[in-house]
Structure formats: C-alpha cells, structure tokens
Design a protein around this nucleic acid. Structure first.
Lengths: 124, 124
DNA sequence: AGCACCCTTAGACTTTGTCTAAGGGTGACA
DNA sequence: TGTCACCCTTAGACAAAGTCTAAGGGTGCT
C-alpha cells in the first residue's frame, strides 16, 4: 500500500460514483501532484482484479470505475448528459433467459443498463 | 444511394451479425477495393441514425454494429472469445424498475447483456 | 458544356489505454 | 548504519478506435 494507491482508493469513494480513468487521475493529482497516469491505470486495474471496483462501460467512450462493488446493482444512464445512477431492480433477469435461448453457453452474469433522460435534461 | 453505401449495407446482413467498424471496412474493401475508412464510419453513423442498425458496446474495445434493429432483443456474450448471440428473454426489465429507483428519470430503454462462456470456450 | 452539390478520399489529429525502460524508496540483512 | 534487491512509480513512446478537414470527383440540372 503506497501513497499513490491510497489516493486512488480515496478518490473512488461514495455512492453513485462513476469516474473515468482520466477523472480519477485529475482528482488524484489534486491530492498528490506527482502521481502519474500509468499508476492510476495500474491501480485501477488491480482494484478491478481484486473485485473492489467494477468497470462500467455505459457508452463507447472511456471506461468508468464504480466502487460500489459489494452490492449487486445496475445502472441508469442519462442519454443526453451521461450522468449515471446505481439502481436495484426487482426480479432476476437470469431467470428470464430460457434454455432454448442460451445456445449452449454457461451464463454467469447479467448487466442491465436503463437509458432515459435525467430530470435536468428532460426539463431543458 | 451510392455504391459505397450499398456495399456497407450488404456487409451488414444476417442474424447474429455484430461486426466492428474495422471488420465492416475489411469486408467492404473485398467488394469495393477503393472504399475508405471514413466512408464506412459515415455510412454506419447514418444507418444508426436512421434506426436501421444498432450500436452495441459489449466490451470496451470497438463498437459493434447489429443489423437486427427491427426486432427488440438483447445480447449474450462469451467472456473469453467475445462471440455474441442475439437473445430474446421473457419478462420486461422496464417493469422491474420501481419508481423509487428512477431518480426522476424518464426511462425509455433497457439493454441487457448476459455474460458467460460459449460451448467452445467452456470445453477448452 | 458548365456548374453546383454532395459524396468520397486520404491522412492528420484526438482520445483512451497499454507498454517499456529507467529512476527511486523501502525493508532485509549484514 | 551501509548495502542490496525488489518492486512500485514515472515519463513518454506506442497502439487502437474514431473524428475531422481539405481536396478531389461524379452526377444531374440547366
């Protein structure tokens, strides 16, 4: 555990946090000016491997990092401004996929992404 | 409708087709050697705007283009080799998101991505 | 034939992420 | 306390995917 890794972990803290690697780097630099991009990428990769942080790819742009890894959840994304909320739908989508639709795959995981407009963008 | 656009449309035809822009370009070049990358990107972008083709981002790498835009469906992705199948789960995930979990958003769309191992990768 | 329009082309540019070689701090051991 | 090895960090080069721009070329209209 180095100062750099601690700073990255501190930046990624809270609910509804979904920062890109660049945003993590920018905030880490504010706390520790000499931290490098490569270190941020390395640390994020390790946190993902350890299961402490989730990678989220809600759009084609940068990957985002979600520290809320210990409670299963899905995402609600504003199609206009890109803001993201964690959501907890009822029901189990895994049970909704019949065997005939599995093509012999061993299915182990589901991601659900809801899309729409956030209150801000809807009123504009 | 130009020759270039026709070729792109021809390349994107069939079930379970999910090509990257680069793959589309490679196959288009086989039919029309002088077609350029920019034209492929432009044409794909137009097809997406017209609603004839869906953009799919199952991984952080390249976007994929899915011509099966007129029948709603979701995707089943092999975590190892990346192969993709179109699937049609039962149930309606939109109904599974209670109002209290919508944060004031106007929710209009859901994408579901199932992940697992395809028969090939599972047996290897 | 001349012209305007728009599609296409090639390539430069941007963004995001990965890789590599060199530098530096920390603990282990004498 | 001095030396050493190890591994993390750094800076920058590199790579992949996509966007943008300026110039070239076909097509149809007049």
């Amino acid at each position: 555990m180095t100062a750099q890794r601690r700073v990255v972990a501190e930046v990624l803290d809270g609910e509804h946090v979904h920062l890109t690697a660049d945003e993590v780097h920018a905030r880490a630099v504010a706390k520790l000016p000499e931290i490098s991009r490569a270190t941020v990428y390395n640390t994020l990769g390790e946190l993902v491997s350890l299961g402490e942080v989730l990678e989220v790819t809600t759009d084609k742009r940068a990957k985002r990092y979600d520290p809320n890894a210990h409670r299963p959840h899905h995402h609600l994304v504003c199609a206009q401004c890109g803001s993201i909320r964690d959501v907890h739908p009822t029901g189990n989508p895994l049970a909704d996929l019949p065997d005939t639709e599995r093509f012999g795959f061993t299915v182990s995981d589901v991601e659900v992404t809801y899309r729409g407009l956030c209150p801000n963008c809807a009123s504009a």
